Computed example of a mutant assay.
Amino acid sequence: MATAVWHALADPGRRAILDRLLRGPRPVGDLARECGLSQPGTSKHLRVLREAGLVDVERDAQRRLYAIRPAPMAELDAWLAPYRRLWNASLDALGDRLDARATEEDEP
């Protein structure tokens, strides 16, 4: 997993932009308004996301539309999979322990 991807995802403003792009391609102005950011600030965030390979930009007449690139997200998901399994196993064990405790408390 590239360091640039982690750096890009570390910022809450960039994560907010990615959340908006889940709905489909958007121009900078829409993203800025929806995220409550300035247009220059949004453009800087988009540059970081683009350089990390997380978004693509396409020209549409006078505007540029930004869209999520799915491949890096799939790589991130694949990298997180073993950790997710570890977390799920821990939650399952906790659930089993809570169920056992509830059963013990119900017994006379």
Rank of each mutant, 00 (worst) to 15 (best):
E107T: 06
R101H: 13
W79C: 02
I68E: 01
D77H: 14
L31N: 04
R84I: 08
R59L: 07
L46M: 07
R50I: 00
R63D: 15
Y83P: 01
E34H: 10
D99I: 09
V28E: 15
G24S: 05
Q39T: 14
L18A: 04
G13K: 15
P27E: 15
T42I: 08
R23T: 09
R63F: 02
P27F: 01
L37P: 00
D77P: 01
P72V: 13
A102L: 09
A4N: 05
A93W: 12
P12E: 00
L18C: 11
V55G: 00
E75D: 12
S38Q: 10
T3F: 06
R50W: 06
P72L: 10
R47I: 03
L46F: 05
R59I: 04
D99R: 10
A81M: 05
R26A: 14
R69G: 01
D106F: 04
L46E: 04
A16E: 03
L94P: 00
D77R: 15
R15T: 08
R23P: 02
W79V: 10
I68H: 01
D92W: 12
D106K: 14
A16R: 15
L9H: 13
N88H: 14
A81H: 05
G53F: 06
K44H: 10
L80Y: 04
L37E: 14
P12I: 06
A81D: 06
G53V: 13
L46K: 08
L22G: 08
A10N: 12
G24Q: 03
E51N: 12
A16G: 11
A93D: 15
P108G: 14
R15E: 00
P70A: 07
P108R: 11
G53T: 12
V5P: 02
L65T: 02
R26E: 13
A78Y: 06
V48K: 15
W79R: 11
D56W: 01
G95K: 13
A89T: 11
